[in-house]
Design a protein around this nucleic acid. Structure first.
Lengths: 343, 343
DNA sequence: TTGTAAGCGTTATCAC
DNA sequence: GTGATAACGCTTACAA
């Protein structure tokens, strides 16, 4: 009896040995309950005796499913992204999906390229980090009708399914903390609020919390700067020069906060002795670069779980909410202290 | 003009738009130099205007290549494996291959399962860590005629392509170091040497280096134990009870060395004051658990590069050496000190 | 240099 | 419950 010598067994070989059709073997292997018990056993016996290993590409081509989900992140060096990714990974794994990970080092073109590679590999769904992406990315997603979800971002347009934070609550939280410490003179170095719901809401949260205590943030006490180190320095400088110098400065982002601290250094001011600085921990840069910075931290692991479940639901054809907000948490560190009464 | 509404473009769509055959599009996209410049341009134009993304599964099915290599390692927590993996990754990437990573937590059945998954995914080659593997693994590799290479192991049978260490040189190195410190009374807690070339060679290296200085390791000064913590403790106990108690004990493996140190602790002996302990850093456990342990470290990154190049050569149909030995390096730490003259 | 067409190994849609 | 058989989207001889 001659067999295909030293060639990998295919479905057909299993079928022949089990004396059934390829269709039955396919069913037996993927939907065991759809075949008679006796048949199932024969097939399994045949498959294992031949050392059969399914051909994933053929399977993917025919079924148009790879049971794979792709995630594109800016970087893998970042502990806080790692949390989200790990949770994503775990949740997908439990549902029988494999996570394919790609990073782009904050380069939009590379991001488009790696996303394309992921789609080529046939991912059934995609997780993107952040809200702004290369138009090609959205184009590819759309033409492939690919389920996707944005994380670490809240899409103000409502056009994209996303899992983000409640930035307003975070703003309230940080303001109330500073109020509790005894601060009464505030300033905020905000991100540019135009077309940026996150920045808007953070500012709104701060404003509302202060207003509730009868404190109004005057226009000189709010300065908007781009989320850059330079922005932080410039913003801090502006704020320190304002008429009623603040005892506490809230920065709309950790990058800004780090810049703000640098400016204080440059001006010979001590933090938090001379001025308190707090921030929102967008990038988890704060804890890396200035471990003492009091910030609002975000539920990153939960975000991964949400993202995964969102995708899984869509892959099952279930309805899903488009926008999800998760609660945030204040992390108190030494950078926020009570104001010097004798300042 | 009607197009396939909201469906991903296929090769055929690109071909139609570029007014060429699908074969030409395929060539233009994968072997650009095989088509006329003008044709190439038309095709590229058509492809990008349609936002064409290749279907990886179809491509893999037809070409029987995925440009993917799989690696199966015991664990990913281990810094030293990470070195090998990173080097592997980098080298493969430079050659246009993607590394698919799987771990099994030292469970042979899981190892077989994840390896199977990798093969299902169509890896063009496989990197295995260590020399002993589930028979199913070798069976699948063979029936798929899959290029593979073992790393972190030297296959004594010569049946498997592998990249390993020169364990004999490592043995010589460690012995000479101790001789240089002034030690003259040695013992060795070796691994089981039967059917284990690595253990044999480590012992042989030590023996030869000592013999060169006229020192003979008597049978009471050599004890063989399995590579376990308990083995290390028992071995150390045996060696300390021997007639001529040693000032330096060489352990065949870091697991043994850690066990040996535990035994010293238990007996109230100080390392290295009362006795020097050294080991071979198989698992990089030494530096994790007992940072002061003098060991031989291995060129783990080079191993990854070798493994990758071995596979790449085989995938190109080139001839390759089956067995590769890489040089090792002594890392001196506090656990090895000169013997107390007044011991 | 380009086109034609036969697969690649599955799954899925039908009949039976 | 099971069996034919037509896709799935691409590559690659082989022809032209």
């Amino acid at each position: 009896m001659k067999t295909r010598s030293s060639k990998a067994a295919r479905l057909e070989d299993v079928a022949r040995l089990a004396k059934v059709s390829t269709a039955t073997v396919s069913r037996a292997l993927t939907l065991p309950h759809k075949v008679k018990a006796r048949t199932l056993e024969r097939v399994q016996q045949a498959a294992s005796s031949l050392g059969y290993v399914a051909h994933g590409a053929a399977r993917a081509l025919a079924s148009r499913r790879t049971h794979t989900v792709g995630a594109v992140v800016p970087t893998l060096d970042n502990a806080i992204f790692a949390n989200t990714i790990q949770a994503l990974q775990r949740t997908l794994d439990e549902a029988g999906y494999v996570l394919l990970l790609a990073s782009h080092g904050f380069d939009a073109d590379i991001e488009a390229r790696v996303t394309r590679t992921l789609i080529e590999r046939g991912v059934d769904g995609l997780v993107l980090l952040g809200t702004t992406h290369h138009p090609d990315i959205y184009r590819m997603i759309e033409s492939h009708n690919l389920p996707y979800v944005l994380t670490w971002a809240f899409d103000e347009s409502g056009n994209h399914p996303c899992v983000g934070f409640d930035n307003r609550a975070a703003g309230i939280c940080i303001a109330e903390h500073l109020l509790g410490l005894g601060h009464r003179r505030f300033a905020m170095v905000s991100g540019i609020t135009a077309h940026n719901e996150r920045a808007q809401e953070r500012l709104a949260g701060v404003r509302d919390a202060l207003a509730a205590r009868g404190i109004t943030l005057l226009s000189g006490q709010i300065v908007e700067k781009p989320y850059t180190h330079t922005g932080g320095r410039e913003g801090m400088r502006a704020v320190l020069n304002s008429a009623d110098s603040p005892t506490a400065v809230i920065c709309g982002n950790d990058v800004l906060a780090i810049g703000a601290m640098a400016e204080c250094h440059a001006q010979g001011l001590r933090v938090p002795d001379d001025v308190s600085i707090t921030g929102f921990d967008d990038m988890e840069m704060a804890s890396l670069m200035t471990p003492a910075l009091t910030t609002v931290r975000f539920p990153t692991a939960e975000m991964g779980i949400y993202a995964a479940n969102h995708l899984l639901a869509r892959l099952d054809g279930k309805a899903v909410e488009l926008r999800n907000k998760l609660p945030t948490q204040l992390i108190v560190r030494a950078s926020a202290a009570a104001p010097k009464t004798a300042a």
